[in-house]
């Protein structure tokens, strides 16, 4: 089975949203986490559910709210009266695909509880450190336009997301199809077109894709160009260059190549950078567009 089967399965459920589908499959193969930003109702959650169903993985959804506690995500220890001892109750993070819906509505304490999981792929509950099932991916959604009652995600956490995908409104044709398809029935997910073992094999094979030294240099140069660029208060960290290299390999793998090309790096650079840079006050004064700024940074470095 190939990743193309997962892509096809997602397209059979989700109308349009080509970039979202591509990004989810890409992140799955690259073994990374995705931050989806967009207005409500643009199929962010649906896409995540469809992905989990397609690979036959366990799926958990956590609606982030201001009163959420870390133990609501990670788990806790409770006293079992029958056994007369404390037992560990695993939280929803112990899954293959975790949908962190509206991640910016929970306070920093909860967001940071995700950090260890996203980076280390394990969680510590009391004295125990427990590994997550593999593959493991956090797919977080965020509405950037509704800032009331939200907590800005710390940079350290944003850095853990391999990709940031902007989910746009569907086209008119797609919207008509959505009304026709989902107006009378619930969404039908295409299940088990690939197995979790398949996913882990794709991840292994993608890591073996050849990345030429000049592409590595290109990725590093793009990330370095983000530091000190116009409208940028704080540039991307070295983790961005690492993410770019990983994603370039995965992108080449999905394209059926055993080697990455400059296009792989250049195409993915905006998705890697846009959530890792901090824009300064001049951006608002000049009315500049964040996406244009990020694309300008990428374009400022000549491809090898």
């Amino acid at each position: 089975m190939t990743p193309a089967a997962v892509r096809d399965a997602l397209h059979r459920t989700i109308v349009g949203q080509q970039e979202v589908v591509e990004s989810l499959v890409l992140a799955l193969v690259a073994d990374g986490h995705v931050l989806l930003e967009g207005m409500p109702g643009v199929a962010k959650t649906l896409a995540c559910r469809a992905l989990a169903a397609a690979v036959g993985g366990a799926f958990k959804r956590v609606q982030f709210t201001p009163d959420l506690l870390p133990s609501d995500i990670v788990g806790t220890r409770i006293f079992d009266q029958h056994a007369g001892e404390f037992v560990t109750v695993r939280g929803p993070i112990f899954t293959n695909v975790l949908l962190a819906d509206e991640i910016n509505r929970a306070p920093a304490k909860v967001q940071s509880a995700l950090l260890e999981g996203m980076q280390e792929r394990r969680a510590t509950i009391g004295p125990e450190t427990l590994p997550f099932p593999r593959p493991f991916a956090v797919l977080a959604t965020m509405n950037p336009y509704d800032a009331d009652g939200t907590y800005a995600l710390p940079l350290a956490q944003l850095d853990r997301f391999l990709l940031n995908v902007r989910v746009a409104y569907p086209s008119r044709e797609d919207e008509l199809t959505i009304v026709d398809r989902f107006g009378a029935a619930d969404p039908q997910f295409v299940s088990n077109v690939a197995s979790l073992e398949d996913v882990q094999r794709w991840q292994r094979e993608a890591r073996e894709v050849h990345l030429d030294d000049r592409l590595r240099d290109y990725a590093v140069d793009i990330v370095r160009a983000s530091r000190g660029a116009r409208y940028i208060a704080s540039g991307a960290s070295p983790r961005a260059a690492l993410a770019l290299a990983i994603l370039a390999r995965a992108h080449a793998y999905l394209d059926g190549r055993a080697f990455a090309l400059p296009d792989d790096v250049r195409t993915l650079a905006p998705s890697v950078l846009r959530h890792r840079v901090v824009f300064d006050h001049r951006l608002g004064i000049d009315g500049a567009d964040t996406e244009e700024v990020v694309r300008g940074i990428v374009a400022s470095v000549a491809a090898p």
């Binding site: 080697f259 990455a260 400059p262």
Partner: peptide, 11 residues
Amino acid sequence: TERVRFGPIAE
């Protein structure tokens, strides 16, 4: 050309 330039040396 891109395959030769950016592909694995063995190939």
